[in-house]
Design a protein around this nucleic acid. Structure first.
Length: 524
DNA sequence: AAATGCGGGTCCG
DNA sequence: CGGACCCGCATTT
């Protein structure tokens, strides 16, 4: 089986393996978390591009082509018990690139000091069951980047953080680093790590975004046979998994943002109660508090608490490391509370206002309650009404007509715009995720959604596509659920679809797994 | 010590 | 043959 990439873009069409690549003078902004099948063009003086850096843990892969640097994703380091940090977050540390160092990481005790789990690698299988790959190619005029696959795992901690942790090994005990470590201790996500048997893929002619768990063909001890990532394949087993027992992993690239901050404890000043909270057999989270530990050979969880002073929130506070792209968390050693830094607040005010106001609508940030504290912003899926169902779940009610109206919009445009907005959406999600402590697995099930809505099967892809929006539903806090704060997804989606990024060199493509197709790209 | 890049080599489909 | 991956080596951080 070979995964084939078919490019949908017509302008500036190029492939990293082309013998000649067009000269492109319009450059993209560096994308630290490039995800999905995309191509980017960076200027030659881009330091990050020159370093071939990425937020993902990418290791060099020999493709026997000196002209193209290939890297493959190492996944993320998670707790073997998938223990749950305070608000449903999970451990997701950065795997070392160095094989030796990575081996040392594995098997280490979970940074959750109350968890008996061990750190293990959750491998990336986002490209037809294989790790997502990045390609870098330098030309006379630019640096070309191409990614293949969609990460099926949460983001690892920021590179800067793991570097900071490493530097602790030198014996330094720097408060700023402790802050970083505390922050990383809070990292995690709520996504299920699903292990489903492989099935073969069906050829499809357009993108199919499913919410089914990615097949794991790399499991050596399991006879998996299918590796269709959500964007690329439709696997036959989709229909045989009882909905009630499915634990969907959101496969929208936007669905794997770090849900890693512990805002609640800060904003509510709830005390921490260290504990380990594995999932129950329904995938629900026994959500309690704990976070105050980190991993690493050189810095044991207990050491955090040996610092002489509690770390109080000081806004804004910035460590010596670049945290601008990732929200930071401060650990108050006195109360055991995680405090979130809001360095990106200005960005949020700006970008969200831009997003929401980009059309002629009279919407404003205020309608989203986008003020100086992050306890706001509650968009919903199309005309969906959310009602608290359990402590961690909601029922969903949809207006079928409205939903189908949405779904009958032009597919291509919808998809294109959706991809163009991935960063915006994901950032938005990140923001939202900081405000709640509910799990959201139940809300990423687009298939369940369209089944619930009894939507025609021809709209299923689009329904699934909506998963990224459904994710927002989890951003509701039971306590804060109130209709006056609800912004319908129609509004948000309208704005999304009218938001045209200024950088246009991003080319997302459809991809599908192809049985009996041998259309290898050559690297030479 | 780890990250990074290179390249020889093997395995598999 | 292409892709994934292992390994050792050299250099850089």
């Amino acid at each position: 089986m070979t995964c084939r990439v078919s490019y949908s873009s017509s302008s500036s069409d190029w492939d990293i393996n082309d013998s000649t690549i067009p000269r492109i003078s319009e450059f993209d902004q560096f994308s630290e978390w490039a995800d999905g099948h995309c191509r980017l063009v960076y200027p030659q003086n881009s330091e990050e591009a020159k370093r071939h850096s990425s937020g993902w843990a990418m290791r060099n892969t020999n493709n026997h082509n000196v002209h193209i640097l290939k890297k493959s994703c190492l996944g993320v380091l998670v707790c073997s018990q998938r223990c749950i940090l305070p608000n449903g977050d999970r451990v997701h540390l950065r795997p070392a690139i160095c094989d030796k160092a990575r081996k040392k990481q594995q098997g280490k005790p979970c940074p959750n000091r109350q968890c008996s789990g061990r750190l293990e690698i959750q491998t990336c299988r986002g490209h037809c069951g294989y790790p997502v790959t990045h390609f870098w190619r330098h030309t006379e005029y630019a640096i070309f980047f191409q990614a293949k696959g969609i990460h099926d795992h949460p983001r690892p901690e920021a590179k800067s953080t793991s570097e900071a942790r490493r530097s602790l090994g030198s014996g330094r005990r720097v408060r700023g680093l402790a802050v970083l470590l505390a922050r990383e201790a809070a990292l995690g996500n709520k996504l299920m790590s699903l292990r489903e048997p492989k099935r073969h893929c069906k050829d499809i002619n357009q993108v199919s975004r499913t919410l089914n768990p990615p097949p794991l063909i790399a499991d050596l001890d399991k006879g998996y046979s299918c590796s269709c990532p959500p964007f690329e394949c439709i696997c036959t087993f989709q229909s045989v998994v009882p909905v009630a027992h499915q634990q969907y992993t959101p496969h929208s690239p936007s669905a794997y943002q770090p849900m890693n901050q512990q805002l609640d404890s800060y904003w509510t000043q709830e005390p921490l109660q260290a504990q380990s909270y594995p999932l129950d057999n329904m995938g629900n989270i026994n959500n309690q508090y704990d976070f105050a530990s980190v991993s690493g050979d050189l810095f044991q969880p207990e050491e955090i608490f040996q610092l002489d002073q509690p770390l109080r929130p000081e806004y804004p506070q910035q460590s010596t490391t670049d945290l601008s792209r990732s929200p930071s968390t401060l650990l108050d050693l006195g109360s055991g509370t995680i405090h979130r830094e809001f360095k990106s607040e200005d960005y949020w005010n700006q970008s969200l206002c831009t997003l929401m106001n980009d059309d002629s609508n009279n919407s404003s940030c205020s309608r989203y309650n986008l003020v100086s504290s992050p306890d706001v912003l509650q968009p919903t899926i199309p005309h969906a009404t959310l009602t608290p169902q359990t402590d961690i779940g909601y029922t969903q009610k949809y207006d079928k007509l409205q939903l189908e109206n949405y779904l009958t919009d032009d597919y291509d445009n919808s998809y294109k715009n959706q991809n163009n907005l991935l960063n915006v959406i994901s950032d938005t999600k990140m923001f939202f995720d900081n405000t709640v402590h509910n799990t959201y697995e139940n809300f990423t099930d687009a298939r369940h959604m369209y089944k619930t809505c009894n939507v025609d099967s021809k709209y299923q892809d689009k329904c699934v596509e909506l998963a990224q929006f459904v994710d927002y539903t989890t951003l509701y806090d039971n306590k804060n659920l109130s209709t006056e704060n609800v912004v319908t997804m129609n509004e948000l989606d309208f704005r999304i679809n009218h938001y045209i990024p200024t950088t246009t060199n991003v080319h997302y493509n459809t991809e599908f797994c192809n049985i009996n197709t041998s259309s290898h790209h050559t690297n030479n």
